[in-house]
Computed example of a mutant assay.
Amino acid sequence: MRSLLKPLVLGMALSTALVGCTSLTEQPASTPSFEQQKQINDLVQTGMYYYWNGGDLKKVEQEFFKGITLKGKFDVVEASFEQASELAPNRLDLRFGIASTQIIQSKVDDAIKTYESILELDPENFDAGILAAAYKKVSGDMEGYKAEMADLGQRYPEQTADYLSTFERTDTFMATELNTKASTSKEKNHTIVTLGYALSPEGEMRQPLIDRLEQTLAAATKNPEATVIVSGGVPNGGVTESFLMKQWLVEKGVAADRIYMDDKAKDTVGNAIYSTEIMKELGTEHVTLISSASHMRRALSIFAEVADRENAEISFDNLVAMDFDTMEEAMTVSANESLVIYRDMLRGSGIWAYPGLQI
């Protein structure tokens, strides 16, 4: 089992330093010249800046990507990693970055081809193989998926069996019943985990987050012995989601010493990783996960995967803030949602989307 907690912190902290380093996934090749290495570093830094922040597309077209018409920030990310890979074609970390960006843009067939190009350079690369298999499954290519898994199973029986179980659990979560009413849990060592939602530019909570907190208050009231984790570390207006979430709950009467803040997470995978770190300290055995209905299946899949990889024996139920008109709509899983669930579950399993930069 690969641990996620310390590598994520290390990777995030050293992202700038790692860009120019030899990757663990890099194949032997001639060393790029100083100028080429500088250009690779600039391209990767540009790509990751646009991944997190977006920016001026016209400006970056003129400076980096002449002749390419960019339609959005992920075009910049993909183009950055593609040009960096052209300068260092044997650096597999750059190819993983290309494929991850293609997945973000729902370019699944392109991503599978990119993973296959990694396997041409490194036939023993398990991560590329399992990613190719998973996305073939998501895209409906069950014949290709089964062939890929059969091949991986012969060479890596334990790892492949582990992922087969993960895929089965993920598929189960995609059909899970969504609960809209708080209930009293009989489980021991119970923790309520509430996921954040982006604040306004002025640092104010938006309605989806308030809706989640209303459900948190109801669950905390019905389960007075449960600890509470509020997770969200994206700052706006000088405050993070988790800070305002705790403040709101305390003002509504929840004791401050029941509430633990994760103020590091920048996305749902981070929510799972950092909340699991807290839950291991608390000795949590059961979680009521709270988020919006549209987000719950993905959140459950990621949290369960991270808990499993961290050897934390935690069971999960859910409580949702409805953001659909009907439960029938809420229970419908689109093809795009399936893709996003698998994408982030795989990140939660320890496969970095951008090796050394972003899990």
Rank of each mutant, 00 (worst) to 15 (best):
D323L: 03
K73I: 06
R298A: 01
E225Y: 00
M205H: 02
A220K: 07
E305F: 07
S315G: 07
E329A: 12
L199K: 01
Q45F: 15
I192K: 03
D122S: 11
M279Y: 00
K71W: 00
M205L: 05
E202D: 05
W248N: 01
A265M: 05
F167W: 11
L119T: 09
Y274P: 06
A307S: 11
N90Q: 10
N336T: 13
V234R: 06
S334G: 07
M296Y: 05
V76R: 01
N53L: 02
A150E: 12
V239I: 07
G54H: 06
V230Y: 00
L131F: 05
S3P: 10
V254C: 01
L57V: 12
E214Y: 15
S165H: 12
A161I: 09
I104M: 10
D262S: 03
L121V: 08
M48K: 06
C21N: 08
I118Y: 00
F303D: 03
Q27N: 11
E82N: 10
A13L: 15
T332H: 10
T25A: 09
Q207D: 04
M345W: 09
T216K: 00
G72I: 04
D308S: 13
Q45K: 14
A111K: 06
L152P: 06
L8Y: 03
K71F: 06
T184G: 03
T180S: 09
V254P: 04
D344P: 04
V333I: 12
L164H: 12
E328H: 04
E204Q: 08
G20I: 11
A299T: 13
S165Y: 09
V320L: 03
E329N: 09
K186H: 15
